[in-house]
Design a protein around this nucleic acid. Structure first.
Length: 282
DNA sequence: ACCGCGGCCTGGCGGC
DNA sequence: TGCCGCCAGGCCGCGG
């Protein structure tokens, strides 16, 4: 479940089941699920006590009780959901169960991942040092993120997806943030005024916070929380997936195009902020 | 140093 | 019905 609100929904769901528990058994059913790991995951994890479930952007990780949490070199268990990963409580009847784990209180965790872009990997926390803060962090610096965005010479849509600028934003929330801030996805990030860069990042935070309150966005059973339930933010989408439909703000037709290889949806009429002519407000 | 593109996978859908 | 190409919410590494 790809973007920040979906990952955070999983993190919150996982927390009460795993904190204070230890791994009793871990079985890897698909080699890609722990690629990059030499030793078997079970040898690395069994007996280790989980102290916390943390997240930055779309990266989630388990902190262990026997590690120094202020040490950037400490080992953590990264759980990345990739494009189609799920972490479920209990056993799951699916051909895509890639990892099955049991905790010391007999709680079962199933890592289900159709496309195998996700993984569990024990490694040093600093492996993800390049991931920028996400807009839901309490000390997130909007001004600095705005400057990083404007340092990019790509289209602003592409820059929003760059996890070293800010993290957590994926293809859905990038389109939604640009729609909310009334900025064209095609506009060069470096051509944005600072206040518009800040506005679109701020909008990304707002949209993701709102999505989180309804459990994230899911169009199908691929994107579910730890109990297999779908979120329903798809009902609140204004741009993503709405190509050919009328803009909720101005009625013009939403256009679908491709930017940076990703489907991109926007209103060509009212997403023109910072282009010299203000959109007609309805 | 940066940016753009291709690759990694599976499965569902629309078109022929 | 069947096959084929295209598309999908992410990320990394390569080459220019």
């Amino acid at each position: 479940m790809p973007e920040l609100p979906e990952v955070e929904s999983v993190r919150r769901g996982l927390e009460p089941y795993v904190v204070g528990r230890s791994f009793a058994a871990v079985e890897v059913h698909h080699p890609r699920a722990n690629r990059g790991q030499e030793a078997p995951l079970s040898a690395l994890l069994v007996g280790r006590k989980i102290a916390a479930v943390a997240r930055r952007g779309k990266f989630m990780w388990l902190e262990f009780a026997d590690e120094d949490h202020s040490d950037p070199a400490r080992d953590v268990l990264f759980i990345h959901l990739g494009m189609s990963g799920q972490v479920r409580i209990g056993e799951v009847d699916s051909p895509h169960v890639r990892i099955a784990a049991v905790l010391d209180d007999a709680t079962r965790l199933s890592f289900v991942d159709q496309r195998t872009f996700g993984y569990w990997r024990l490694g040093p926390w600093l492996t993800m040092a390049h991931i920028a803060p996400d807009p839901l962090e309490t000390d997130f610096d909007l001004t600095a993120a705005g400057r990083r965005l404007r340092a990019k010479r790509t289209a602003v849509k592409v820059a929003l997806l760059d996890q070293t600028v800010l993290s957590g934003v994926g293809n859905i929330y990038a389109d939604e943030a640009l729609w909310a801030a009334q900025i064209s996805p095609l506009k060069k990030a470096s051509a944005l005024r600072q206040r518009d860069a800040v506005a679109v990042i701020s909008a990304a935070g707002d949209v993701m916070r709102e999505a989180l309150t309804v459990g994230g966005t899911s169009f199908d059973a691929l994107y579910v929380n730890v109990n297999g339930e779908s979120g329903y933010f798809d009902r609140s989408l204004h741009a993503y997936g709405r190509g050919g439909q009328p803009c909720d703000r101005c009625g013009e037709e939403i256009v679908k195009t491709v930017l940076g290889g990703r489907g991109t949806h926007y209103c060509p009429s009212c997403q023109r902020r910072g282009e010299g002519r203000l959109p007609a407000a309805n």
